[in-house]
């Protein structure tokens, strides 16, 4: 964990898609140790907002600033799709994403932590949707990154998994990570919320 003052600033962020304003005037400052929940109806632009934050989507107006140019090395992004290739086993998938994300840690222990003990060497094609999601989530149990951006991490996760994930997110925030995620599920009481509705954005802290 680095001592960098992790911070995300959005100013007047606005995004149009297919001739429709998805959201406008999104302004906020998010700091290390905070958990931000992003809510909104289907099609409100939650995924697009996260994609703008991590640099995947570049067509927007306004400002999006991370604390410095090296923010990518602190980023752990889990997209809408779990990023798991069916031809590979959970272990192979995880090892590859770790190498790519320059993340260290024990992949076997992480897979065990998300309940995939015994499935390490089963081709991912034979796993359920929830299990595939868990393969992606296993990265949260490796070396902790400074920024977590999670797109619908609770999708297809069972009750035990939800509790476990809550705990892990809370732990990361307590240790100084900034967590931003989309979901209708609220992690805990201290969570800040950004709600997107009909093109408008509201911060409910």
């Amino acid at each position: 964990m680095s001592d960098t003052p992790i911070r995300l600033t959005l100013e007047q962020l606005q995004c149009e898609r297919d001739d429709r304003v998805l959201f406008r005037d999104v302004s906020l400052t998010a700091r290390a140790g905070e958990i931000w929940q992003i809510t909104g109806a289907n099609g409100a632009g939650k995924t697009t907002l996260l994609r703008i934050l991590v640099g995947l989507h570049g067509f927007y107006e306004g400002q999006r600033d991370w604390w410095d140019d090296n923010w990518r090395s602190e980023l752990l992004y889990l997209g809408h799709q779990p990023g798991v290739r069916e031809e590979l086993t959970p272990l192979e998938n995880l090892k590859f994403t770790c190498a790519l994300g320059a993340q260290s840690g024990d992949p076997m222990a992480a897979l065990a932590a998300v309940g995939l003990r015994g499935f390490e060497d089963v081709p991912a094609a034979h796993l359920s949707a929830g299990q595939k999601r868990r393969v992606a989530l296993a990265r949260l149990w490796l070396e902790r990154k400074g920024v977590w951006v999670l797109d619908e991490p609770y999708t297809a996760i069972d009750q035990d998994g939800v509790a476990q994930l809550d705990e892990q997110i809370q732990k990361a925030a307590d240790a100084g990570s900034l967590v931003l995620y989309t979901s209708h599920h609220q992690v805990g009481d201290g969570v800040k919320r950004l709600h997107l509705a009909k093109g408008r954005a509201e911060v409910l802290a």
Binding site: L56, R72, G83, V84, G101
Partner: peptide, 11 residues
Amino acid sequence: SGVLEQLLTSP
């Protein structure tokens, strides 16, 4: 599968 996004957001 979302691997491409991992590739593009990696350091």
